[in-house]
Design a protein around this nucleic acid. Structure first.
Length: 418
RNA sequence: GCGAUCGUGGUGAAGCGGUUAACACACCGGAUUGUGGCUCCGGCACUCGCGGGUUCGAAUCCCGUCGUUCGCCCCA
């Protein structure tokens, strides 16, 4: 037996880091007036088939799908947006005042070969906003994402944006691309060839040299955009400038999910290696709410991969404040003292102090060592002599100073120093 | 799904065909009958992912298998 492939335990000494990520995410969202939503970790399989798109890699080969005892097909969520949109529709939140601005946080599941910054169970922090077509909202979302990285202390995250039009425009653009690539078909690498008729946009960011050369002169989607989409892109750019968000327009930027319309964007950190460089991505999905049974309400959001954020923090040697020192470690000597310590320990804890004692019958020296390891601010020593006098020796671990105080004064003494 | 890589104690690692599997850190104990962070001493792998094979002999070679890490596809 072992842990399933592509998963990992977050041990207590790492949990502090995760708490910190969540805390920053919540604080940033709070500033932008987004509220947290929690949806199930699994959904009906058809939600993803319809929402994410039948021909996407996620749906074709990466879903953790299973039948429950009544033979319903369920799937562990591979991404966050579909479930959130389902909830938006199912709870008729569109009937409330708009826009609706939500964020979420949690594990996602994709059956893939693990790699740097890629796991089968991984964690995303995501944001979704419904009910507005204002390009200022696109800019707000992008800016929120960037703010998250910056607040964490990560620098050098680049924003790439594009406009992928709408399904009709994309269909037309695909034709243009196919027409362009067709004469070169024999020269394309096998991957590119197989994508030619399925999703020619993917050929554009090929890493194969010859394919790259051919793709260099390929038509840009920007030339296929209608006036409305072009203008939309311009407005988003304008608002990003207003928000002082640096960005690059990247007309080759494609996202892996079918539902994107208009704005598509990515957060990239080049130094993180081949796969992990994209630390977040998102876009607008104006048809998705309707596709999933709701009214015609537009939406936009992003997903940020937290394992990749962690990689970035490590790469940039950003340290995270996680220490949680003990207020008092109770050192006992002798059976009677040990018994008496139970009551004292209880009092300390009820008074709100983080307190601990030895449970392994270790010697005083070992107990002090443990206290030291646990970063105890104070140690209270209880031996036979103290017991007789109803006193404890209180030692301040940093200064080494030690004083004798009455047992019933211990709580107030420790609280004073806090 | 494909390619490569590695798999030795709690951790990081040496050993790469021959009687006792280095070393460091961590952990436990002692030096110090009741005082931590430093120092010194001692303890801690009948065994080298698992299965099979080659050999007089394998942690060391071969095959398989499982897993790791990295890359491809794709993505966070």
């Amino acid at each position: 037996m072992g842990i399933p492939r592509g998963t990992y335990d977050i041990l207590p000494n790492e949990v502090g880091t995760w708490h910190y990520l969540e805390k920053i995410a919540r604080e940033v969202c709070q500033r932008y007036a987004y509220a947290e939503i929690r949806t199930p970790i699994f959904e009906e399989t058809s939600l993803y088939e319809r929402g994410v798109g039948e021909t996407t890699d996620i749906v074709e080969k990466e879903m953790y799908t299973f039948l429950d005892r009544k033979n319903r097909s369920l799937t562990l969520r591979p991404e966050g947006t579909a479930g959130v949109v389902r909830s938006f529709v199912e709870n008729k939140v569109y009937a409330d005042m708009q826009p609706t601005k939500w964020y979420y946080f949690g594990p996602m599941f994709r059956y893939e070969r693990p790699q740097a910054g890629r796991f089968r169970q991984f964690h995303q922090f995501g944001v979704e906003a419904f009910g507005s077509d204002d390009p200022a909202l696109d800019a707000e979302i992008i800016s929120l994402g960037l703010d998250f990285y910056q607040t964490l202390g990560i620098s050098g995250v680049k924003v790439g944006i594009n406009n992928v039009g709408n399904p009709e425009i994309r269909a037309k653009y695909f034709e243009n691309l196919i027409a362009y690539f067709k004469p070169y078909e024999a020269e394309l690498d096998p991957d590119a060839k197989s994508r030619l008729y399925r999703n020619p946009m993917r050929i554009l960011d090929s890493k194969v040299k010859r394919t790259q050369e051919i793709a260099q002169e390929a038509p840009s989607i920007l030339d296929s955009l209608d006036k409305e989409s072009m203008e939309y892109l311009e407005r988003v750019k304008f608002y990003l400038q207003e928000l002082q968000v640096p960005f690059d327009v990247n007309d080759r930027l494609v996202r892996g999910l079918d539902y994107y319309t208009q704005t598509a964007f990515e957060f990239v950190m080049e130094e993180l290696g081949a796969q992990a460089g994209v630390v977040g991505g998102g876009g607008r999905y104006n048809g998705l709410v309707k596709e999933l049974g709701g009214p015609e309400v537009s939406g936009i959001g992003f997903g940020i991969g937290l394992e990749r954020v962690l990689l970035a923090l490590k790469e940039q040697k950003v340290t995270i404040p996680t220490s949680d020192p003990l207020d008092c470690y109770l050192v006992t000597m002798g059976e009677e003292a040990k018994v008496a310590s139970v009551r004292i320990l209880g009092e300390l804890r009820r008074a709100g102090l983080k307190a601990e004692r030895d449970y392994l019958d270790r010697k005083m020296k070992a107990q002090l060592k443990t206290a030291n390891r646990n970063e105890a601010r104070f140690v209270a020593i209880l031996g036979e002599e103290e017991l007789v006098n109803q006193q404890v020796q209180v030692k301040h671990m940093e200064t080494g100073e030690q004083t004798s105080i009455a047992m019933d004064q211990l709580v107030s003494y420790l609280l004073e120093g806090k």
